[in-house]
């Protein structure tokens, strides 16, 4: 009788219960916009009325993070990390062909918890998010933009390093604009809960990069054939807006949990 009671107690206690949540590993992919054929040019019309046809669109994703919190306001917080708890990460990215709607695996497996995620971050870096210099090509685009009779064959190569460093607007706050903030697309609104056996898909629509770009302000770098080129810095309007489009937290990046 007593032995059976003790045995029951052991069974009741040992291994029973949980601290809540679960850790899991998952696969992660990136892809271009859906509904297209891989390898074919991607044509779209921007908010400024340009019809853009991309023949090359590549993006280097450094890492992807999911967070359970939504920032409530814009604050002076200059930390590269969100205040809330991160629930999933893919701490390694890939060069993604955005003209290919097929799933392209990221270089690292995802790790996370089963907590619900409300925001996401895309890190556009080759490694250290705080490095002053990072030669990694984050984005590379080629294409043609037309508006009426105007035609702008263009290309752009975007890196994020000293060329994107911002001077502090207030000398009393020299650390208000760290380079890490230039490398992070955040917060991207999502609502998903990682589950065992599923995978994360990041779809990137490069059309959103060009929404505010005025191609007619681009510098022409070649006459024959004509070629307009975005600067790899933020010193002119089109280049600055393309970079801002690259870092837009809505309309460009969509994250989906695929069971």
């Amino acid at each position: 009788m007593r032995r059976s009671f003790l045995a029951s107690l052991v069974l009741a206690l040992a291994g029973c219960g949980s601290t809540g949540g679960e850790l899991l590993e998952f696969d992660a992919y990136a892809a271009g916009p859906e509904g297209r054929t891989a390898g074919e040019p991607y044509t779209f019309v921007t908010d400024r009325g340009y019809e853009v046809t991309l023949t090359t669109a590549k993006l280097h994703i450094g890492a992807v993070y999911l967070n359970q919190s939504v920032p409530t306001s814009v604050s002076s917080d200059t930390s590269c990390y969100l205040a809330g708890q991160y629930v999933a990460e893919i701490a390694g990215g890939a060069d993604v062909d955005l003209l290919d709607p097929g799933l392209q695996p990221l270089s690292a497996r995802g790790f996370g918890t089963t907590e619900r995620a409300k925001t996401a971050e895309i890190w556009l870096s080759g490694g250290d998010i705080d490095a002053d210099v990072d030669p990694t090509v984050i984005a590379r685009v080629e294409g043609v933009a037309t508006r009426g009779a105007e035609t702008f064959p263009f290309d752009a190569t975007i890196t994020i390093g000293e060329n994107r460093a911002l001077e502090p607007s207030d000398p009393a706050q020299p650390g208000a604009r760290p380079i890490c903030k230039q490398r992070i697309v955040s917060p991207i609104e999502i609502d998903l809960r990682p589950e065992a056996g599923g995978s994360l898909v990041v779809r990137v629509d490069p059309a959103g990069w060009f929404d505010n770009v005025s191609f007619d302000e681009l510098e022409q770098v070649d006459d024959s054939p004509p070629l307009y080129r975005f600067r790899d810095d933020s010193l002119d309007q089109p280049s600055r807006n393309l970079f801002n489009g690259l870092r837009a937290n809505s309309g460009v990046y969509e994250l989906e949990w695929v069971p």
Binding site: A63, Y86, A91, F111, G127, I129
Partner: peptide, 18 residues
């Protein structure tokens, strides 16, 4: 323990519990 750490600052940070 299970918690967040990042002992390799040269690579993308590890921000979820491990």
């Amino acid at each position: 323990f299970n918690y967040v750490s990042d002992f390799d600052a040269t690579n993308p940070a590890t921000l979820v519990p491990a």
